[in-house]
Design a binder for these strands. Structure first.
Length: 893
DNA sequence: TTTTTAGCCA
DNA sequence: ACGTGGCTAAAAAC
């Protein structure tokens, strides 16, 4: 192509925005105000790429305008049956148009026509003017426009790659010329446009006919000569094919406001572009837009992704010894876990622009030493999702490193309610590159090493090790800007190592006791089931809500309960109500069955997770709970039953490793920590007095609410007050309270009014918390941990009120989580400092469980009480309860 | 394979 | 419509 050729680039805006929307995970692209930006991001990213690769002299972007098109007029079902546009897509096209306007890129539309018609017209004008034309569109109808001077750039795989559909490429792929593509499409049909074609005819058959007869009119004329089922179908669908052919013709003679020759980019409005990028919270993308802003050549923002070197043992030693002891070091591995047992075969290490990958299974002692030295002593190690990798390395005999940063945790703190924090996505979003390059190259952590692609898998790990470094730099800046450096570096990052140790240690269980208990619960469940069957005279799957509904509401004609999406609820509350109303024994047995099967399932689930060392190694997730709490999986040890006697028998199965010098378990839990935080944050004098006086909180509050003396508070009054106090922390309504206490709404409202009368500062605090969250967009814990709640400004009431309740709860639940995390760090440090062998095994939100080394109880109890009690400075004391026993249950107090 | 229902914890 | 934050299992829907 000579340099003086004029090159015209035409873009189908709507089609590309839609492609981008589905190519990029919407949950990873939204602003703090809740505006989704994935389609905008993908579109702009594509625009930058295509401008760089095509270097057009002329450009235009077309959008569909208006619902009424001539196609819809002729065929009312045109594009009918399409799935509704997802709500997250709304507004993104407008944002793209705003951005294009600010960039002075011509936008061309025509009322009553689709973007494709506009592009077709411009392409024809361009060809007439001797221009080379490229059309970027995800609509195959435009293939009919391909010619020696017109190429269709069709997105494959997301929006990052464009297939160049020249006439030859179309001929190759479909077996027809661009002129005949319309005929092919008419025969085959287009599902997305609701244009059915000839049944049983696909690209191959259509191409065969078109080649044989020349073009579509000739095929239709020869329809009677075509044999077989396909020919029969063709004859039966002639009118549809003709209709498709009329509708898929693109209009090339529109009178447009801008002609191809006039489609030239003007001078960008830099301020407007920057304001928009700010609003979209795009940072890296903004730098990549620099060249479009007409400024002096900006430095290339695209990081050069180095190709990691595959090194052997000697190469690893050389690389490690050459590392700067001050500068950050990126590390990635292929660690994976099964029942608490980790495996790691490969490691990537990077610093600056250099990255290597090594096969850990082939290292010699010198290399192992060098690696141990690096992991054990380097102060700047950065990993993405460090904990599983640290655990696997530790099990492989390497020291538990000092972690400088975990990029997954940093990303979580910035947006704690995101679903995933994958390295590749974060790099794309924050750094403008993606470390996962080749499609056949597995990502770190997911590889299955076959001999053929072992090398590419290994370089993927090295690339990940390198990628965390630029990501870390960006995330650190953003964490600092949000005031969360303290939460990150003083709480979350040091906690990783502690959790890793807790998980590696696990908690011992009585394996045969579990088996026996499971069998016992199983037998009880079977007995309840048999009794239930006897009560109705036949068997039914008691675990199937659908079958239960048939029995309860049709067979037994009981009154209908609350609606669910698919019928009527059969939950325990509803069944209890029904039992009160009907007294039918089936209900009683069903409830008994539910209880015991649940217990049995819990026991069986635990049994499955016992590792070879007779211990259960749960995994704590540090980036899941939006409030800052931990969560626990595989198995979840934060929801082991405790409320019933039968349930507590499961806690009897958790024991110390007596043979290893651990005689007992110890539990330490914060008493009423959330109410204490409420007292502190609200500054309510009444609540603060109650805690300072060390009185029973609920009796104290009950005395005020019911206007009696503290010792005149009955158990019934106390339990009402307790439910209310906790409910308030979560935004409970009078209706909810009435349901929970099985009292009237008016009585519930009376209780709440009385409560707020006596504890006015609590009400003020709660109202103020929502108000300030609405204003700044996020809630904050005492330690600065944020949760963004853009839905506080939603105009949908249900959505908004849900956000309001979250805003009430997040600072309190989150502060409690912060305090417990700080306590864990200090307890761990204090145990080590005191030279004690007792160790922390579990965390259950406000409780920790320790394995007590022989003879250490007094020291440990003292240490726990002091350290946990002093973990935070509140207006009220932090009370810690400590218990000791031969099982988790017995250690409870 | 994903969604729905139910139930356990703080 | 009506209390927050989690995880798991089984059935049902896809």
């Amino acid at each position: 192509m000579s340099t003086d050729t004029r090159r015209l680039l035409l873009i189908d805006g709507h089609s590309l925005a839609y492609r981008a929307f589905y190519a990029l995970p919407v949950e990873n692209f939204s602003t703090t105000t809740g505006q989704s930006t994935n389609a905008v991001y993908g579109f702009v990213s594509m625009l930058i790429n295509v401008l760089a690769s095509e270097e057009p002299t002329h450009i235009a972007v077309a959008f569909d305008l208006g619902r009424e098109t001539f196609r819809l007029e002729e065929y009312p079902e045109y594009k009918a049956g399409r799935a509704k546009t997802p709500p997250e897509f709304h507004g993104q096209v407008e944002l793209i148009q705003d951005l294009l306007r600010a960039l002075a890129v011509p936008v061309v539309t025509q009322e009553g026509f689709e973007a494709d018609d506009v592009l077709a017209t411009l392409a024809v004008q361009g060809t007439a003017a001797g221009m080379e034309t490229g059309i970027v569109t995800g609509d195959k109808d435009s293939f009919q426009l391909a010619s020696p001077s017109v190429t269709i750039l069709y997105p494959k795989r997301g929006v990052s790659e464009l297939a160049r559909m020249t006439p030859e490429a179309i001929e190759d792929k479909y077996g027809v010329s661009p002129e005949n593509y319309r005929g092919l499409a008419a025969l085959v049909g287009e599902k997305a446009d609701n244009l059915p074609g000839v049944p049983g005819v696909g690209d191959k058959t259509a191409a065969k006919w078109l080649t044989k007869y020349g073009d579509l009119p000739a095929v239709l004329a020869a329809a009677d000569d075509i044999g077989g089922k396909a020919g029969e179908n063709l004859r039966a669908h002639l009118s549809e094919v003709e209709r498709n052919h009329r509708l898929n013709r693109l209009v090339t003679d529109l009178e447009l406001a801008t002609s191809a020759a006039e489609a030239v980019r003007g001078e960008a409005d830099r301020e407007a572009v920057e304001a928009l990028l700010d609003q979209l919270e795009f940072q890296v993308l903004g730098r990549r837009l620099e060249p479009l802003l007409g400024a002096a050549a900006a430095p290339a923002a695209d990081a050069e992704i180095p190709v990691p070197r595959l090194v052997d043992a000697a190469g690893l030693v050389e690389f490690v010894s050459g590392l700067d002891a001050e500068a950050p070091v990126g590390v990635a591995t292929d660690a994976r876990f099964e029942l608490g047992l980790g495996t790691v075969d490969a490691i990537g290490i990077a610093q600056g622009d250099a990255a290597v990958t090594a096969d850990l299974t082939t290292l010699d002692p010198a290399a192992v030493d060098a690696l141990s030295e690096l992991l054990g002593s380097h102060p700047g190690l950065v990993l993405h999702s460090a904990k599983p990798q640290l655990k696997a390395l530790a099990q492989a005999g390497y020291p538990l490193p000092h972690l400088a940063l975990d990029t997954e945790i940093a990303a979580y703190l910035l947006v704690p309610d995101q679903r995933t924090y994958e390295l590749a996505d974060l790099c794309t979003r924050h750094c403008g590159f993606s470390p996962a390059v080749a499609e056949d190259e597995p990502e770190a952590g997911t590889l299955d090493l076959g001999p053929a692609d072992a090398a590419s898998a290994l370089t993927g790990i090295g690339r990940s090790a390198w990628a965390v470094l630029p990501l870390a730099a960006v995330l650190r800046e953003r964490i600092e800007a949000a005031g969360m450096t303290g939460v990150l570096t003083d709480i979350e990052i040091p906690l990783v190592t502690i959790l890793a140790r807790m998980e590696l240690t696990g908690i011992a269980v009585d394996r045969s006791g579990l088996t026996a208990l499971g069998a016992e619960f199983g037998a009880q469940a079977q007995a309840s089931a048999d009794a239930a069957y006897a009560a109705i005279g036949h068997e039914v799957n008691l675990g199937s809500p659908k079958q239960l509904q048939t029995v309860l509401f049709e067979e037994l004609e009981m009154p209908r309960t609350k609606r669910t999406k698919t019928g009527w609820t059969t939950d325990a509350d509803a069944l209890t109500d029904l039992f009160v109303k009907t007294g039918h024994p089936f209900l009683e047995h069903l409830l008994g069955y539910r209880d015991t099967t649940k217990l049995k399932q819990t026991v069986v689930g635990l049994e499955r997770m016992v590792a070879d060392d007779d211990r259960i190694h749960t995994t704590y997730l540090q980036t899941v709970a939006a409030t800052g709490r931990l969560s626990s999986i595989d198995p979840n040890l934060q929801n082991i039953p405790v409320r019933t006697d039968a349930g507590r028998r499961i806690r009897e199965m958790f024991v110390p490793a007596a043979g290893d010098g651990f005689a007992d378990l110890v539990t330490a839990d914060y008493s009423q920590i959330e109410m204490r935080i409420m007292a502190h944050l609200s500054g309510d004098a009444g609540l603060i007095d109650a805690f300072r006086a060390g009185e029973d909180l609920h009796s104290f509050v009950g005395a005020r609410v019911f206007d009696v003396s503290t010792d005149a508070v009955t158990p019934a009054m106390r339990s009402k007050v307790k439910a209310m106090s906790y409910g308030l922390v979560y935004g409970l309504s009078a209706y909810g309270l009435s349901k929970q206490l099985r009292i009237g709404v008016e009585e519930a409202r009376g209780l709440m009014d009385e409560y707020f009368e006596r504890f006015g500062a609590v009400q003020e605090y709660l109202a103020g918390a929502v108000e300030s969250a609405r204003r700044v967009g996020y809630t904050e814990t005492m330690y600065g941990r944020r949760r963004y709640l853009p839905q506080l400004s939603s105009d949908r009431r249900q959505v908004r009120e849900m956000a309001e309740r979250a805003a009430l709860n997040a600072p309190i639940q989150g502060t409690a989580a912060d305090i417990m995390k700080i306590a864990m760090l200090r307890v761990d440090a204090a145990l080590a400092e005191a030279g004690l062998a007792s160790r922390v095994l579990l965390q259950v939100h406000d409780e920790i469980v320790l394995e007590l080394a022989d003879g250490e109880f007094d020291a440990v109890a003292e240490l726990l009480a002091t350290t946990m009690g002093a973990a935070a400075e509140l207006e009220v004391p932090l009370e810690v309860n400590i218990g000791r026993g031969a099982t988790w249950q017995q250690a409870a107090h």
